[in-house]
Design a protein around this nucleic acid. Structure first.
Lengths: 225, 225
DNA sequence: CATCGGCATTTTGCAGACAGTAGCCAGCAG
DNA sequence: CTGCTGGCTACTGTCTGCAAAATGCCGATG
């Protein structure tokens, strides 16, 4: 009897490696976002396959997905290239992000429960601690989790999925500047939570819009220096 | 210097069959949107491959793309199933569409040229003619082109791409009802054009929001009958 | 010296083959 | 009759092999 003392939970589904293509996908995405693969670089299937220790097929499927999500450009009969973000595209992407996040804030304000608000406050506090400790990586991570939680409270799965993709790309483009503005960001978060708690949809939406627009402004200011 | 007098665009690039996976993708998408493949149906790779006269590989890649775009659900080690839209999801999708279209209308109002507005009026007139002729298919097609043109005038490629995906899925969900309301729709289009021409961003945005919301209302009314 | 044509290499696109696994049915013990 | 177990089937996931297309280079030529 092997199946005797399994203490409940903790073993949801017996850790399976999952489809290879997904792991390849995540590996490549990691390499791209960390700039290990630079924009414009030519990605050779067999090269990646050899480097990751798999065949070309999973690599192909991962590249297909990265292509539809806008991370790589797949030119027919020529191969995959890491997407090169232009100024214009970055700006447009930020516009869309502002739109999606503002709507999420509005929806969250419309029907957030006290439990969700408590979580937001907790995340916010944790983020501020990270900033105080000068732990930039942790602060960035907490920022992402905060926005994701707001999105979750909005209760719109479609919106959440789109925002997740857009957000990730925005973060890719704006990482340098995003790492800069740590403190003021969390003050704005606090105000946003207050608006959500007050069920003030309009104010929550405007605050979030302003909040994300600050990123754009920081970027353009940085550009001058 | 050969590349001298090429009057920009207009060169069809010598129609080539294009990658097989793309054609498979479009074929499958057509089959799904036309309900030839019903929601929940199990798609067997070898079956599709045989039916289309190609190998499994292009089919797999097409399914991957359809999966990331939300048309099919790809359950590991079990295969692909046509996505089954739920009431909740359809509603959420419509919310997002409203959001994107309204923003597009605002942006279009912000910087549309007279040339673009002329095209809109032309499309509108053509749509009305189709309605008068009771040509429902043409009217639906013109409606899609009209919205696409507004999106183009917005000048935001990222927004346009997202909206294109969302719009197509919305049309899939709401085809029965969408075919109904033909005439009033074009009156609203006219008002929208007026607002864009007047550079009235707020009014354009609100009109578009109202316009797309009508679809939701029509759907819920239909539900009762 | 510049340019054009052809060749070789590289890389993708596609097809077929093999292994692993989930689901199902029959058979059997209780 | 019911519940379990074993094997079977069909499908997916992955790997390898082959042919076509594009690129870049090199030599030939005006």
């Amino acid at each position: 009897m092997l199946s005797q003392g399994l203490p409940q939970g903790a073993v949801p589904k017996l850790e399976r490696p999952g489809p290879l293509r997904d792991r390849v996908y995540e590996a490549l995405l990691e390499l791209i976002t960390t700039r290990a693969l630079q924009p414009g670089q030519h990605l050779v299937e067999s090269e990646l396959a050899g480097h990751l220790g798999v065949s070309r097929q999973p690599v192909r499927e991962a590249l297909q997905r990265l292509n539809t999500e806008g991370w790589v450009d797949l030119r027919p009969a020529q191969g995959a290239f890491v997407h090169e973000p232009t100024e214009e595209e970055a700006d447009q992407l930020l516009t869309v992000r502002t739109l999606l996040e503002a709507e999420a804030a509005r929806l969250a304000a419309a029907d957030a429960g006290s439990a969700g608000i408590a979580v937001l406050r907790e995340l916010c506090a944790e983020g501020e601690r990270a900033v105080d400790a000068d732990d930039v990586d942790a602060a960035v991570a907490m920022n992402a989790r905060f926005h994701a939680k707001v999105m979750e409270l909005a209760g719109n799965a479609v919106l959440a999925e789109l925002a997740a993709q857009v957000d990730r790309r925005v973060r890719w483009y704006y990482t340098p500047v995003a790492r800069q503005r740590g403190l003021t960001s969390w003050i704005e978060h606090r105000h946003l939570i207050d608006a959500i708690e007050a069920r003030d949809e309009l104010r929550a939406s405007l605050l979030m819009r302003e909040h994300t627009e600050h990123t754009r402004r920081s970027y353009h200011e940085r550009e001058k220096s």
